[in-house]
């Protein structure tokens, strides 16, 4: 309790908590759809593109967000297209784009400013990265994501479960795919400054995978992912404060812990059910 009060007395930590909770929530909700559609790699690819864009922007002295948001949104369109086409090996293509943009970011940076703390913090995240402006953007983003999941919930389900059927019943599937990809892109750009390019995709993938272990309906998986993501984020931040560990990595470990706990719960449940029979 005392620790929480102490944490909240630092304005930068309050910002990190507020922004982080909102971003974790968005990432988890979008993640349910991405993971179930086998698009998890898109999250990973986008985080690397985002790293490349951010470090080039920093090296050139441009505003980081103003450059990277459009670049990553474009990359999201592109990655979605190659994944939907299915003709090119999409996992290989994404891996190529990831490594390519990572390398571009690193080379441009070392040529201009050298590996500054900025770049290293984009790689592994920095608790100081959340500006008041970032928090406001995160709030706007989560308003949009929540609206999508409240008012278009059934369409999101239909598109996630079965694109061909949804298309045949008149749902604009491509529009939904684009909306989800664009929101994911913005989530990643905002989140990676704090979580780090190497770890942001875990916010998308972990909560959904964790919830799928135990829950058997889409609604329950969506709720659980949101709740698990927020709890894990807060636990990770508390641990990071208490033990002075990097925030991003601590949050990922908290998510890993939740995954292990849900997995164990599922196994124990299955074991008990087996005994009853």
């Amino acid at each position: 309790m005392k620790m929480i009060g102490e944490m909240l007395s630092y304005p930068f930590l309050v910002r990190a908590l507020a922004g982080g909770i909102l971003i974790s929530l968005c990432a988890a909700l979008l993640g349910v759809s991405l993971v179930l559609k086998r698009y998890s790699m898109i999250g990973d690819g986008l985080s690397h593109v985002s790293f490349g864009a951010l470090s080039i922007a920093v090296a050139m002295g441009w505003a980081p967000l103003a450059v990277s948001v459009p670049v990553v949104v474009l990359a999201a369109f592109f990655l979605l297209r190659i994944t939907e086409n299915g003709k090119i090996k999409s996992d290989a293509a994404i891996a190529m784009i990831s490594a390519g943009s990572l390398a571009a970011g690193i080379v441009v940076t070392s040529l201009t400013t050298g590996m500054t703390t900025d770049v290293s913090s984009y790689m592994f995240g920095s608790i100081l990265a959340m500006s008041p402006w970032d928090v406001r953007l995160s709030a706007a983003l989560s308003a949009v994501v929540l609206a999508l999941f409240v008012f278009c919930y059934d369409r999101v389900f239909a598109v996630t479960f079965d694109e061909s059927f949804a298309r045949a019943t008149g749902v604009n599937v491509s529009a939904y795919n684009v909306i989800i990809a664009v929101l994911t892109a913005i989530t990643i750009v905002l989140g990676m400054q704090m979580m780090g390019a190497m770890m942001i995709s875990s916010l998308i993938i972990f909560p959904a995978l964790t919830s799928m272990q135990v829950f058997k309906s889409f609604r329950a998986v969506v709720w659980s992912s949101g709740i698990v993501a927020v709890i894990c984020f807060c636990l990770g931040m508390a641990a990071s404060y208490r033990f002075s560990t990097p925030a991003g990595a601590s949050v990922v470990l908290a998510n890993l812990g939740a995954f292990a706990a849900f997995w164990a719960a599922q196994r124990i449940g299955a074991f008990l059910a087996g005994k009853h029979k």
Partner: peptide
């Protein structure tokens, strides 16, 4: 993807 989809 549908084969292990969590949906009731």
């Amino acid at each position: 993807a549908q084969k292990d989809f969590p949906a009731s």
